[in-house]
């Protein structure tokens, strides 16, 4: 039983890899490396997260490969620990936004009528407020904690997911197989989870990658403005902010975390693009 389960998983994995374009394969390796760095941070980081190892803004050296930051902490170490925060917060927030936005979007599409109008107008109302300003207001009023940060990011992002999942589900809900399920007497939840969701997965998966990239950027923005991760904890966004003054003096310390953000978002986009281009149709079956 276990053996068959593993073979199924392996063949699914090889099919997934075969589906990716060469660029996306490189991106997948980069993403896996970053993920490994985040997971194994305490073991692979050369120094402690807040350990001061030398002078501020030291250049690249054998002691600290990427130099030091504005307080003399090792940049590589901070990058590795920052990846932890970035993945955890952006990942959880995106998961939250997909669970919430996706579920509500499907309910709106399947129920239609008054339920759809109510949910859609509420969503429009949320979307009418500029996201960043909304987040700034809430985060400066609420106590600063990881949970509040994740909740705010997730809820704000779920409005976009709601729109997409509703649009995708509306297209699927008109098919006869959904009508057949209704005629059978199936409950809304069954229709959503068994009839709609499997057919909506590929566009939603593609969107998941994009929204994750946006969440990373949004978290960086919030941290840069001082409302995201609080010092001394490392995060790529606040590393850019803390080191930006160095640029004036020709010190590249701010560019290194910025490059990490760019690398992460570009990698995700490459993978997502490749997946979208291969699974955009509703043909079903084994290969779709």
């Amino acid at each position: 039983m276990t053996a068959t389960a593993t073979t199924v998983k392996i063949s699914a994995f090889t099919r997934f890899v075969a589906m990716l374009s060469p660029g996306a394969r490189v991106a997948a390796v980069v993403l896996l490396l970053l993920l490994a760095a985040a997971l194994l941070a305490p073991w692979i980081a050369p120094y402690g997260e807040n350990e001061i190892v030398g002078e501020f803004w030291e250049s690249f050296s054998a002691r600290s490969w990427l130099g030091t930051d504005q307080l003399g902490r090792d940049l590589l170490t901070r990058l590795i620990y920052g990846a932890q925060n970035t993945f955890l917060i952006a990942g959880t927030a995106t998961l939250l936004s997909f669970t919430m936005g996706g579920f509500l979007g499907f309910i709106a599409a399947v129920s239609g009528g008054a339920v759809d109008s109510l949910l859609s107008r509420l969503n429009d109302m949320m979307m009418a407020i500029p996201t960043l300003i909304f987040a700034l207001v809430i985060l400066s009023v609420m106590p600063s904690s990881l949970i509040v940060l994740i909740l705010v990011m997730g809820v704000l992002d779920s409005t976009r997911v709601f729109r997409l999942s509703r649009a995708v589900a509306v297209d699927i809900a008109v098919f006869d197989f959904v009508e057949a399920a209704r005629l059978r007497g199936e409950r809304t939840f069954w229709i959503i989870s068994r009839e709609i969701l499997p057919n909506a997965l590929s566009p939603l998966f593609a969107e998941f990658g994009l929204r994750f990239a946006f969440a990373v950027l949004f978290l960086s923005t919030l941290s840069f403005l001082g409302l995201g991760i609080q010092p001394p904890e490392a995060d790529w966004g606040n590393m850019v902010r803390d080191n930006r003054d160095g640029i004036i003096y020709g010190i590249p310390a701010a560019l290194i975390p910025a490059a990490a953000i760019a690398m992460l978002t570009i990698s995700i986009n490459l993978i997502v693009d490749s997946v979208i281009s291969r699974t955009s149709s509703l043909k079903g079956g084994r290969d779709a």
Binding site: F175, D176, A180, L183, G185, R194, P198, G284
Partner: peptide, 19 residues
């Protein structure tokens, strides 16, 4: 609901392609 069943014109869209 059970005693009354339906068969559709287009079998392609009458069955969930993922089932």
């Amino acid at each position: 609901l059970r005693v009354m069943q339906m068969i559709y014109q287009m079998p392609d869209v009458a069955m969930n392609p993922r089932h």
